[in-house]
Amino acid sequence: MIHVENVSKSFTLHNQAAAEIPVMAGASLCVAPGECVALTGASGAGKSTLMRMIYGNYLTASGRIMVGEVDVARAAPREIIALRRYTLGYVSQFLRVVPRVSTRDVVAEPLLATGATRAEALAQAETLLARLNIPERLWPLSPTTFSGGEQQRVNIARGFAYPYPALLLDEPTASLDPDNRATVLAMIGEAKDRGAAIIGIFHDRMARDEVCDRTLDVSQFTPGRAT
């Protein structure tokens, strides 16, 4: 489902004497449907960078990143938009939403974008929010005022609202209590069962061992720091 082939990336900081910082070279990775692969490596090794490149959030300098039929490294913006709408889900560590929009609507939005009716989308949103133990009295409120753990769960609900065939999970269980952590891991397991290809970053080793089929240390793709 996800094929990363010989990918490289560097940042050029024009405003800091045009310093060029290579961050990745020769990265390759394959994830089959129903498989969950964990990215590992020390902080700064490029786990999030690789994930962001797969999502199209960072540009890729060279190589191919096939998600389904689309090469993210070369696709036009509208192809990536369609990919994100129907194929590739992403749960980031940060919740970024329009202020003053209710939690229920925030979670329902990915479904509405795929053409679901409002009633269907809201029903699914409520099911997920209930499952993730977000109190019902918070549903009509904007998640911007929620605690970190609550925001994280809203983010997960939003990422799981639509059954994407491919999922990127950046620290999905960080800052969760044991009950909610178990729920999230169960949801990841269910996504695998329905055939989703998943790439995750888990600092939580126990969680990683529970849901991931294998790990990939991205340190091997980190170019020697030329300093």
Binding site: F11, T12, L13, H14, N15, A18, R52, G56, N57, Y58, L59, P77, I80, I81
Partner: peptide
């Protein structure tokens, strides 16, 4: 030009980097 979040999170041009920062 590019995808909105890509241009904002990984700006390539010096001016865009300045604008975002």
């Amino acid at each position: 030009t590019g995808l909105t979040d890509q241009v904002l999170d990984d700006p390539q041009h010096a001016y865009t980097q300045l604008l975002v920062s």
